[in-house]
Amino acid sequence: MRCLRKHFSRKYLREEVLPTPFCPGCFNGVVMNAMFKAFEELGVERLKGYVFVSGIGCSSWIPSPHIKADTIHTLHGRAVAVATGVKLAKPNLNVIVIGGDGDLAAIGFNHLVHAARRNMDLLVILVNNLVYGMTRGQASPTTPEGMRTVTTPYGAYEPVMDVAELIARTNANYVARWCVVNFNQLKNSIKEALSKYSRGFRFIEVIAPCITYVVRYEGKTPGQKIKELMKVCRPNTETPYGRIGILKAEDKPGYLDRYFEYVKRATEGDKGE
C-alpha cells in the first residue's frame, strides 16, 4: 500500500500536535496555509531564524504549539512587546507576531500602535475573527454593529475599530487587509512583507470570521460563508470590513536602522548633553 501524501503545510508543523484544537472549518487553518505557501514560494524549507510570538486567543494558538520553529506564547495583549524585546535583543532574527482582534486591537492596542509608530521591524498578522472566540464569543472592538453576542445580547452598539486604517496612519511601512478568501493576495502580501518590504513595521489584517460565534450564529456553514466572502471581498473595494487591499507599501528605514544611526551619533563624539 502506498503511503498517504502529506499536505504541503505539514513540513512547517509539529506533527505530534495535529489535529489542531480549532473548530471544524476554522479559518485559522486557511491563514496558516497562506503563510506556509508564502514560505514555500520564498524557498524557506526550515523556519530556523524565525521567531513566532503570539498572545492569548484562538489565533494565538496558530504558532504555539503548531509551527515548527521558535515560538513564544505570551500574555494576553503582550505579544508585540515581547516580540520587540526579542527583535532588539537579536536583530538578525525574523520576528512574526500572530494575534487576534481582542489581543492586538483591544488589550494590546497600545503596544501595536506604538510598534507601528516606531516602525519596529516586525511582521504582525492580525487574524480578525470579529469576536473573542476562545472565551465564548464576546464582542470585540471589531464586532460589526448590530451583531448579537453574549455581551451584546441586543445587538452591538459600539462603533467598529478599523485597525488596518489606524495602523496605516502611523509610520508603519506596510499595511494590507485581506479576507481569508483572498488566498493568493494574502499569500503574496506575506511574501512581500518578508522579502521586498523586509524592514520596519509590516501589518496584515486578515478578515476570518469566527466559525462558531459568527458564522454558525448566522446559520451558515463554513462553506457557505466562504462563498459569501468571495462575493463581498473584492480586492481594492470598500467592504463591510473596511477597504480590502494593500493600504500602504513603503520601504522607509525601520526602527533598527534609526537606532543604529543613533548609536553612531553616540559613539562618534556626541556627548549627549
Binding site: G25, V30, N33
Partner: peptide, 21 residues
C-alpha cells in the same frame, strides 16, 4: 481544496507529472 483545507488533511495526486500538493 488543499489551500483552503484548514486542517491540512487533503492532498491531490495527479497521474501525469506526479504532482503533489
Amino acid at each position: 481544496c488543499t489551500l483552503y483545507c484548514p486542517d491540512f488533511a487533503i492532498t491531490i495526486v495527479c497521474n501525469e507529472g506526479g504532482g503533489q500538493g
